[in-house]
Design a protein around this nucleic acid. Structure first.
Length: 205
DNA sequence: AGCACGATTAACT
DNA sequence: GTTAATCGTGCTC
């Protein structure tokens, strides 16, 4: 077993939490079985002034969770078919969350493979909607307490990464967002994984 | 009530 | 590089 990240882990500024989530373990319990992966890519979304953040529209039924207590899951639906998993961060009353963009599968590989049938292993969890499909995460988990070990979903300490392993880039998929938000480097990636993605791009382009 | 768009993915040219 | 899939959300009328 591994130490569960306490609620206080999330009660910090969103940029700190986004960076600190690298190397941590995301655990899903499916039919009593642990299905998990190591977080290797995150993005921070911070406040109503961040025009890429859903909270730019203020407090609405969808964004209310981001204004609440840190450590809860914000799970939303987009493009008519995809779910995304976020961790709400502090302080309470300020809307901010970390998008989990990629994990490396660790436990329950058979379950993940079944959910991602037919895809090569490297494409099982290397995208925010892919990992939700792989771990069977959908809107039913919106608002879940992520420090609640043994529930449906939680996070464990895992193996934090060193500063040398962290790469920062602009966030992905917000090309219609005005500057400076479109280019601000609030995406955090484990260097090894970023190198893998660059190699993929080279070979496909 | 109607509209445009989206923190994406997969398949195609 | 381009585009369809597909529907909840927030905005306008």
């Amino acid at each position: 077993m591994d130490t569960t990240l306490p609620q206080s882990f999330y009660d910090r500024p969103v940029l700190h939490v986004a960076r600190d989530l690298l190397g941590r373990r995301l655990v899903r319990l499916l039919n009593g079985q642990r299905v998990s992966g190591r977080i290797v890519e995150t993005e921070a979304y911070r406040g109503e002034e961040d025009l890429a953040c859903h909270a730019r529209a203020g407090r609405t039924p969808r964004t209310a969770i981001m204004y609440g207590a840190p450590g809860h899951a914000y799970v939303y639906f987009t493009y008519g078919m995809h779910w995304m998993l976020n961790c709400v961060t502090g302080p309470e009353g300020f809307p901010a969350a970390v998008l989990i963009r990629a994990i490396v599968p660790q436990e329950g590989l058979d379950v993940i493979a079944a959910h991602r049938a037919g895809r090569p292993r490297r494409e099982w969890c290397n995208g925010p909607a892919k990992l939700c499909q792989a771990l069977n995460i959908d809107g039913r988990l919106n608002g879940a307490a992520l420090w609640n070990v043994g529930s449906e979903i939680w996070l464990e300490a895992g193996q934090p990464v060193t500063e040398e392993q962290v790469r920062c880039t602009p966030r992905i998929g917000i090309h219609n967002t005005p500057e400076p938000w479109r280019s601000i480097p609030w995406r955090f990636v484990v260097a090894e994984q970023l190198n893998l993605k660059e190699k993929q791009n080279e070979s496909s382009g």
